[in-house]
Simulated assay, not measured.
Amino acid sequence: MRIVIAGGHGRIALLLARRLRDRGHEPVGLIRNADHAADLAAAGAQPVVLDLESSGVDAVAAVLAGADAAVFAAGGGPDSGAARKLAVDRDGAVLLADAAVAAGVRRLLVVSSMGADDFGPAEGLDADVAAGLRDDPDGLDVFTVYQRAKGAADAAVRDRDLDWTIVRPGGLVDDAPTGSVTVAASTGRGTIPRSDVAEVIAVALDQGLAIRRQFEVVSGPEPIPVALQRL
């Protein structure tokens, strides 16, 4: 399968690219910075320079044309402000979903965030952020904006006619992979290695699992394929 990964230079994305390559798939990574192309190539992914923040549906759909699946693993980054949480974590995910619909790519997997529905509705979020940026750029609760942006993006993806999967990992760590997880609509607090999140995505794509399912995932006792087959 040809699988296009938005946010291709992210840590989960690079781990995913290696796993997809090892399974015989063709990963393609979307990056903003051409200097990152060598890192994608080393991970087995074809780099494509495309900035989701400055691209429209047609441009993204052109890259998705002929793909079998798309993955949204992009993010504004831990040090970005509230405006980029909206521009990337929300609007970027919606853009990729709309481009997938336009390109006829039915399979879409989104890396979201645990508890993204617990921070209130997204209505008025843009106005709240704009007011905060105008009046007090350091006073915004950026984490709340991030969670609300993720929740809004997930709702938009669920509303599209796509074979979506929404993965909401717990606290991300760089520990060695365990290959075992707990998945549920709500798992409770926990952590998970980024490499295990990448494996969850790879298994879901490779085996066609968790279609039209949204779930949280943390480290746990169940092998990843078994846990996904139960959903």
Rank of each mutant, 00 (worst) to 15 (best):
T165K: 03
G190T: 12
A153F: 07
S195N: 09
V181W: 07
V200A: 04
I166Q: 00
G170P: 03
D161H: 09
D174S: 14
P169E: 04
A202Y: 01
D163A: 08
L172R: 05
A185V: 11
D196K: 13
I201W: 06
S186V: 11
D159V: 05
D206G: 01
A152K: 08
D163H: 01
V183G: 11
A156H: 02
G190H: 12
I192Y: 02
R168M: 13
G171N: 10
I192G: 05
S186N: 09
G188R: 12
V200Y: 08
V181Y: 04
L172E: 07
T182N: 14
I192A: 08
E199Y: 02
T165V: 13
S195D: 13
G170E: 06
D161M: 13
P193A: 06
D154F: 02
T187K: 10
P169I: 12
A155Q: 09
A198Q: 05
L162M: 11
T178V: 14
T191D: 06
T165N: 10
T178K: 12
P169L: 15
D161L: 14
V167T: 00
T191C: 14
I192P: 01
R189A: 00
G171P: 05
R160K: 06
V157M: 07
L162W: 00
P177Y: 03
I192M: 11
A156N: 07
R158Y: 03
A204L: 06
L172T: 10
A202I: 05
W164K: 12
I192S: 10
V200W: 06
R194T: 11
G190K: 05
V200F: 05
R168V: 14
D163P: 03
V173G: 05
G170N: 07
V183L: 13
T191N: 08
A176R: 15
A176P: 13
D163W: 02
D154P: 00
G188Q: 07
T178H: 13
V203D: 07
L172G: 01
T187L: 15
T187V: 13
V200M: 03
T178L: 13
S180F: 14
A185F: 06
I192N: 09
V183S: 15
P193K: 00
D196C: 14
S186E: 15
L172K: 12
T178R: 13
E199S: 01
D175Q: 10
A184M: 05
A185K: 00
P193F: 08
G170A: 15
A198V: 09
A153R: 03
A155C: 01
L205H: 06
V200C: 03
A156C: 08
A153V: 09
D154R: 04
G171W: 05
V181S: 02
D163Q: 00
T165Q: 12
A153L: 00
T182S: 10
D174Y: 09
D175L: 15
I166M: 03
D159P: 01
G188C: 07
V183M: 12
A153I: 04
T191A: 12
G171T: 15
D174F: 05
R158T: 08
P193S: 08
A198S: 05
L205W: 01
